[in-house]
Computed example of a mutant assay.
Amino acid sequence: MESEDAIPPEKLVEDLKLSEEQSYSLQSECDNVHTPRIGEGDSPSADLEAREDDDLFHDCNDSFESKVTGENHNCEVDSSENQTELDEKYLLELQKDMSEEEKQKRRDESTKLKEEGNEQFKRREYEEAEDSYSKALEVCPACCSTDRSVLYSNRAAARMKQDKKEVAIGDCSKALELNPDYIKALLRRAELYEKTEKLDEALEDYKNVLEKDPSVHQAREACLRLPRQIEERNEKLKKEMLGKLKDLGNFVLRPFGLSTDNFQVKQDSSTGSYSINFVQNNNR
């Protein structure tokens, strides 16, 4: 039997309805507060430092824990990773008729949860911080894109500390979808890409950072270092591929008493084309 105090779904939907003009006004208000992008006349480095309490960032050497504690870390996935979060555009459409009062109430609650997460992060309670940021995202109005971008980036930092690289990359990408000029999210994702051996993607993000703020030392250093690492990786992959092809060729030729050593590949220096010559092996 249903409770007499139960609220029918229709009532819940009706409580969310208001005009689109009111939704737009809060959108403007949200996006003009704490925007983590570089303003005209502002020092880029000073802007990054000024937002430290609100938006966490850590250098490459300190972003990951040296050891992941807990025997069951690799076996048990945190529940927040399993949650299916709605697409931002879809969420915005769902909340377009939400009252201004409700939006402000949710935004205040989200800010409080974010501050709790920041304090937990400072105490190295990274799992608890991740949970606080996730809860903040659940209540933060979709129209407050700047706030949500910071929350995604902060949750990525908490997940980085727990060595949850892939989901942290996803959070950084969501933060950048909401704010493409978000330097800290770009740096986080570049660092994560590098940690997961996605060197080409990391270099692209570091270059993007330098375009937005040439003073970021971490990005400058990475742009000098990564091209050489990418070249070395490609050479290694090339050798591995040629080795596998040679093994395959020997397997095919063995029944005929031949091997890849019986075939000599030469490159024409003038045309760049290759020729293959058969070499008789007289050793028995």
Results as ranks from 00 to 15, higher is better:
residue 2 E to I: 10
residue 5 D to N: 12
residue 7 I to P: 10
residue 7 I to K: 07
residue 9 P to F: 07
residue 11 K to M: 13
residue 12 L to S: 13
residue 12 L to W: 09
residue 13 V to A: 15
residue 13 V to I: 14
residue 18 L to P: 15
residue 18 L to R: 15
residue 19 S to T: 07
residue 22 Q to K: 15
residue 23 S to M: 10
residue 25 S to A: 14
residue 31 D to A: 11
residue 35 T to E: 09
residue 35 T to R: 12
residue 41 G to P: 01
residue 41 G to D: 02
residue 43 S to K: 05
residue 43 S to E: 03
residue 43 S to Y: 08
residue 45 S to T: 11
residue 47 D to E: 12
residue 49 E to P: 10
residue 52 E to F: 08
residue 59 D to M: 08
residue 60 C to M: 15
residue 60 C to T: 13
residue 61 N to I: 07
residue 63 S to Q: 10
residue 68 V to G: 09
residue 70 G to I: 01
residue 79 S to R: 13
residue 81 E to R: 12
residue 86 L to A: 10
residue 90 Y to P: 15
residue 93 E to P: 15
residue 93 E to C: 15
residue 93 E to S: 13
residue 99 S to T: 08
residue 100 E to I: 10
residue 102 E to F: 11
residue 103 K to A: 12
residue 104 Q to C: 13
residue 111 T to R: 09
residue 112 K to S: 10
residue 113 L to T: 06
residue 113 L to R: 03
residue 113 L to E: 05
residue 117 G to K: 00
residue 122 K to V: 01
residue 122 K to C: 00
residue 123 R to K: 12
residue 124 R to Q: 03
residue 131 D to I: 10
residue 131 D to M: 11
residue 132 S to Q: 06
residue 133 Y to Q: 00
residue 140 C to T: 04
residue 142 A to I: 04
residue 142 A to M: 03
residue 143 C to E: 09
residue 146 T to D: 06
residue 147 D to C: 08
residue 149 S to I: 05
residue 151 L to A: 02
residue 152 Y to N: 06
residue 154 N to H: 00
residue 155 R to F: 00
residue 155 R to A: 02
residue 158 A to Y: 00
residue 159 R to M: 02
residue 162 Q to E: 04
residue 165 K to I: 01
residue 165 K to L: 02
residue 165 K to Y: 04
residue 167 V to D: 10
residue 168 A to I: 00
residue 169 I to F: 06
residue 170 G to S: 14
residue 172 C to A: 01
residue 175 A to L: 00
residue 177 E to F: 05
residue 177 E to G: 04
residue 177 E to H: 08
residue 177 E to R: 05
residue 178 L to T: 02
residue 182 Y to E: 06
residue 182 Y to A: 03
residue 186 L to Q: 04
residue 187 L to E: 01
residue 187 L to H: 03
residue 193 Y to C: 05
residue 194 E to F: 01
residue 197 E to K: 12
residue 199 L to R: 04
residue 199 L to D: 04
residue 201 E to F: 08
residue 202 A to W: 02
residue 204 E to Y: 05
residue 206 Y to G: 03
residue 207 K to C: 14
residue 208 N to I: 14
residue 211 E to G: 11
residue 213 D to Y: 02
residue 213 D to Q: 05
residue 217 H to T: 13
residue 220 R to N: 14
residue 222 A to L: 04
residue 222 A to W: 02
residue 224 L to D: 14
residue 225 R to F: 03
residue 227 P to E: 10
residue 231 E to V: 03
residue 233 R to N: 12
residue 234 N to D: 12
residue 234 N to V: 02
residue 235 E to S: 09
residue 237 L to T: 12
residue 238 K to A: 08
residue 240 E to H: 12
residue 242 L to Y: 08
residue 243 G to C: 07
residue 245 L to Q: 08
residue 246 K to N: 07
residue 247 D to N: 10
residue 248 L to H: 15
residue 248 L to A: 11
residue 250 N to R: 02
residue 253 L to V: 03
residue 254 R to C: 15
residue 257 G to Q: 01
residue 259 S to F: 04
residue 261 D to M: 11
residue 263 F to H: 02
residue 263 F to N: 02
residue 266 K to S: 08
residue 268 D to C: 03
residue 269 S to E: 14
residue 269 S to R: 14
residue 269 S to P: 06
residue 270 S to F: 13
residue 271 T to Q: 04
residue 273 S to W: 13
residue 273 S to M: 10
residue 274 Y to H: 13
residue 279 V to D: 09
residue 282 N to S: 08
